[in-house]
Each structure stands twice: as structure tokens, then as C-alpha cells.
Design a protein around this nucleic acid. Sequence first.
DNA 1: ACCCATATATTCGGAACCGACTATCTGAGT
DNA 2: ACTCAGATAGTCGGTTCCGAATATATGGGT
Lengths: 212, 212
Amino acid sequence: MTVRKRPVSNLLGLAVLGLLLEQPMHPYEMAATLREREKDASFKVKTGSLYDVVESLVRAGWIAEHSTERAGRRPERTVYAHTELGRKEFMSWLDELVRTPVKEYPSFLAAVSYLGALGPERAVQALGERIARLDEQIDEARQAQADVLSQHTPRLFVIELEYALTMAEAERDWARQIVGEIQNGTLTWPELITREGRQVWTDHDETEGQQA
Amino acid sequence: MTVRKRPVSNLLGLAVLGLLLEQPMHPYEMAATLREREKDASFKVKTGSLYDVVESLVRAGWIAEHSTERAGRRPERTVYAHTELGRKEFMSWLDELVRTPVKEYPSFLAAVSYLGALGPERAVQALGERIARLDEQIDEARQAQADVLSQHTPRLFVIELEYALTMAEAERDWARQIVGEIQNGTLTWPELITREGRQVWTDHDETEGQQA
DNA sequence: ACCCATATATTCGGAACCGACTATCTGAGT
DNA sequence: ACTCAGATAGTCGGTTCCGAATATATGGGT
């Protein structure tokens, strides 16, 4: 069973398919609808990409041109609809995305990988600011969530907001913990010494070890 | 104070700078070193991108050609070193990455945004499998971490593994909670009805509301 | 009447990204 | 001696991605 690569990798394609499953639409309306529903927090909605993605979905036969209309002398609009294949592929794509964890490379992971280079004081400073900003964003997100729910939107339709909140809180809590550990000396900076023209780090309880 | 856009957006550039701060290197050695140190879990190390990134760092004046050597008849190697500007920019880039949360678009967030489309049974199935896979990956990561630490590597140098572990656990726990809520009826699927040719969802305690 | 900010709707060129390829060298195993 | 997998080192071309530009319509304010 070769897992034939998906013809569209951009996740925006999933959103497009999801929308067309409800009703035919032209690209601009897709973008507008995604923004209305706050799905632009989950999908990177860039007009440039949107038209490219729609084109490749057409090439793949997952969606098809439904009609073209023109209102006044504005640019012509092409309305698309999903195909039967598209409906099936949407389900299987979605299923796979939920089932299979994918290795991703968030920028904070990269940054933390070099946290040592900042030195303890500057690391505490920077992490402190991140924590403050995350706190703000968490408050705002909670507010936005409450607003949506108060308008009778079923919780299931905004469940991703709960996920995003949970993850933001986890990150904030981790950062707080690290700040604590730096301050109380649980997480220490190895002494930097230079030997033979290259940098080598010593651990205080180290006798002869060294890292490449 | 205009925040002049950084000339290199690829985070691999941060890793390159970090390595060159230690000693001059040629690109292939950078990739090898990053893999040895398990930093390829934090940075997407693709040879193609690596050479592009190095080139743009040179254009930006953050690194510079140091020398070129040739061993036998193998392709010539170009060794690079950081510049003084590069050292400063590395620090400020790193500082900013730690300080400032960036909106990112992980694929699971996208998937969860359409969780409703799977229906309750299939959602539980798929989430269940994700949980199992995350459990495996968490075990492996913990093992890898223990291995590195047992070799006298200072904890600070692999602190990103702790971050990654924390986040993976948070995701797994959230998924577990959602599975629980679906199963005990706390998280429900609104009934789907069709009106006027488009799909409309009704909430069971809803009297006249409807969602666009 | 007129202005212009915002909404409507899409196109395009250049940058970024990366899979696949080239080519040589080394060393373990037979 | 010979082979072949894996390491060494880098190039190249085709997508993919997206910022910026284009062009028209609408509506609120003076």
C-alpha cells in the first residue's frame, strides 16, 4: 500500500475543501468566510496562496469550476464546487491529519535550542517578556472564545480555540518554570573555557568529560 | 524605530550562525554537526536549503568565506566564518525569537478545526491513534534525553528536548480529555439539518439561532 | 458633488524551498 | 583484490509561496 503523496500539501486546501462541502464559492468568498469564522487563526489565509491552492485542487480533480459570474465591471469571479472525489479525499486527509503526529519546527523550539547563548540574565529577561505576552494573548483568546460561544455557535465548531489555548498555557507554564529554575540555581550555565582555539564547556561536576 | 526585516527568515540560518560562532566550518560539516547534537530535531536540516541559507547570510554580511580546501578530487569545500555583524545579529535574532511569540500554523490545529466533519465515532478513533503514537514518541524522546544526559552533556544544551516533551504531553493530554468528553457526552455533535439548500446546524438548546 | 477609505476579486514576478541528482572516497566484509 | 553500502560535498531545477500591485465598486462624511 504505497501512500501516494497528496497532490496538495498546503493546509489551506483542507479549508477550501471544507468550505466547498457546504456550498459552491469563489476564492475571495472563501477567504472572507474563513475570516468571519475565525478560521484564519488555524489556516494561513494569503490571497496569493489561495488562488494557487484552488488551481492545484482543480488539477487534482478534487474541486471543479462550477460557474463564472460578473457583477458590473469588476473582475470576473470563478465559482468552484467540490467533486465526489474531493469529498472522499477531504475525509481521508482530515482523518490522517488527526491520526498522525507530524514533526514541525516552531520558531520557539529553535530559539530554546540556543538559549544558552543568551546567558542567564538575558535569558530570564527574554523569557519574562514572552510570558507576559503569552498571558495577554491568552486573555484575548479567552475573550474571543466567550464572544463566539455567546452567539450560539456550537462548542464543537470552535474546539480548536480550546486546543490553541491549552498549548499556549503549556508553553507559558514551561517558560515560567525555566525562569524559576534559572533564578534558584537549578538550571545552571556551564563555565566556558577555551582550549586549543575552540570552545569547550565544563560542567562543574565534570572530571574529564568534554563535548564535541 | 523601523524593525527592518531580517534578510534571512529561514531558522536554519540561526543554527548556521550558532555553529560558526564556535568555529569556521563548511556547510556539509554544519549539517553533520547539527545531526550529531540532535539539533536536527529543532531545525529542518535540508542540504538544499542549507546552501541557499549560507549564501544569503554571506550576502547579508553576517558570515564570510574563510577559505577553500580540496581533499583529493572530491568537490571543493568552502569554509565560512562568522563576522562581527553576524555575532551581533545572532544575539538579537535569538533574543527576539525568545521574547516574541509568533503565530504559527501546526497541522493538528488545522485538523482540529474540522474535527466536527469526522463525526463522533471516527473522531474518537483518530484521536485515539494519535494519543497512542504520541505516547510512543514521548517514550522515545525521554530515552534519547536520558542517553544524552548520561554522557555529561550539560542539561542547558538539551533544554529544548524538555520543551518539546512538555508540549507533546500537553497535546496528548488535551486529546485524551476531548476523547473523554465525546464519550461521556460533554462534547456533542449538533444535529445537521438542511434548509434552503444549504447546511445549517442546530444546537439542541437552540430556539431560533443559526450560524452563517 | 466630491473624496477616499474600505471592500471586491484576482494576477504576477520573484524569493524560498527542497527532492533528486552527480561524483568521489572510505572501509568492512568476503 | 573486489564490491558495495555509506559517508563526503555540493548543484540544480521545479514547484510552492506570498507580497505587492491592479482595477473597479460602494458608501459615509463634509
